[in-house]
Amino acid sequence: MQLAENRAPDGFDDVTAIISRAELEEIAASYKRMAGSDKETLNTRASLSVG
């Protein structure tokens, strides 16, 4: 969101004109990995509340 604001403060017609699809996918994937909310991690890790 901040990247889109920095690169196109007045808006855009097509987001891929300011952020490539590959860059968008990498940002989304790295955020999910960092937050631990990607589907694979979430569904395979042990529960935090029930041992």
């Binding site: 969101m1 889109a4 604001e5 196109a8 808006g11 855009f12 017609d13 987001v15 952020i19 968008l24 940002i27 989304a28 909310s37 589907k39 979430l42 569904n43």
Partner: peptide
């Protein structure tokens, strides 16, 4: 869905749980 303050879509993805 993430969007600009004007409403234009930046990124949208399905979520789990």
């Amino acid at each position: 869905m993430y969007a600009k303050r004007f409403g234009q879509e930046i990124w949208a993805s399905p979520v789990a749980w």
